[in-house]
Design a protein around this nucleic acid. Sequence first.
DNA 1: GTGGTCTAGACCACC
DNA 2: GTGGTCTAGACCACA
Lengths: 126, 126, 126, 126
Amino acid sequence: MNFNDQQAIYLQIADYICEQLLLDQWPASERIPSVRDLAAVVEVNPNTVMRAYDFLQQKQVIYNKRGIGFFAGEEAKQQIIAYRKERFLAEELPAFFKTLYLLDISMEELQQRYNTFVSDTYPDQP
Amino acid sequence: MNFNDQQAIYLQIADYICEQLLLDQWPASERIPSVRDLAAVVEVNPNTVMRAYDFLQQKQVIYNKRGIGFFAGEEAKQQIIAYRKERFLAEELPAFFKTLYLLDISMEELQQRYNTFVSDTYPDQP
Amino acid sequence: MNFNDQQAIYLQIADYICEQLLLDQWPASERIPSVRDLAAVVEVNPNTVMRAYDFLQQKQVIYNKRGIGFFAGEEAKQQIIAYRKERFLAEELPAFFKTLYLLDISMEELQQRYNTFVSDTYPDQP
Amino acid sequence: MNFNDQQAIYLQIADYICEQLLLDQWPASERIPSVRDLAAVVEVNPNTVMRAYDFLQQKQVIYNKRGIGFFAGEEAKQQIIAYRKERFLAEELPAFFKTLYLLDISMEELQQRYNTFVSDTYPDQP
DNA sequence: GTGGTCTAGACCACC
DNA sequence: GTGGTCTAGACCACA
């Protein structure tokens, strides 16, 4: 986790969890790591992880069985995509396009960098 | 200025100033509005504008003459582009690409939305 | 803090912090006093201390963890020395030498006064 | 003149005048440049030069004949030296020594740099 | 008129 | 508890 980031740590953790689920690193409809375990992994206070789980629970991405743990819902991936796609298109994309325009970055350059990024970051994909 | 934004107002103002310079709304190597004037225009406290000017001065985009005012450096536009392009490519683009990938948004769709954005936002451009 | 000084209070505080670190009064790579605590100690407004911390953070002498506090980096001392030595040699020393020359103060006299100063100010040193 | 300096421009000008006098560039007991002339030379507002002249007049370094101009007193050089030496030893030297100590700059290094400085800056002197 | 600094006090998100 | 931002208002030195 990056401490000196604009984005709150609990949101960084929430994003991390979503990523794991979208990439099928954590099998859907199964138990996800306990608050304490994940806190140890990412080296933050358990309260902070708890807040991320709370946040995702409100977004109906994960749910909780008392005394057992947190689980990713069957429809977790769709929930995540729906929630984030909407926000992304409406809020982040315009600012991103403005930056592209002002910094004079062409779509061709972007396309090229994207291809590089994908093949570097997700080499396993077909 | 958007008061209910994650981004601090003084950073929004700094971005606004950069935009004016990049779009040649404010002639480079000339005096930019005084702290008090800009504060009146954007309707915030002069201290907040001052903080934006401070910020840009540290980034070497603008400089200041005692008792006279703030000026955009000759090379202001290059400074802005250099400073922001570097940060953009290194920090924002990977996160952006990751989102594109995870949300399964194609470059074709992106291209299309970009064209719409540009013609809507900067209709005067050739 | 000296309120009737040319130098701004927040810069005096920044110098004070650097001094504490250089003299190992505050262990490096540890948390330094909170904004509010230091403000109480030096009897200024917390905002003023905050400005000093901001300043040192930009100089990469200290850094900050959200909701936890400010920390002196491992390499804080080297950063301070590097940053100040460079500026000192380039900007202050020539003016100082010019004054020595114009006021006709010899290096012998300087040496003598320096010895007195050191033994008066840092009597503990070997 | 350096606009973005901590030191006020009028004080920079006053220092410049003192330098000229100490180095006998401007013959003592003669008329020194008019406010307008010097303002043109150093490219500042005449008011600012006037303020420097005022300042030096209060320090009894120069004096004024109405309608004729400013003159350096016979004893100008001694006045300058007296005024500045006192202030220098009392106010600037301790801070300078502290910096030397904290930045770990030895008197040997200082001596060496001083020699270089003098031979570079005042090559005409014996 | 310009910027520069400081205060007092408020509110917020975050850990 | 921590820092972060903003306001309102004051005072100052400077050009």
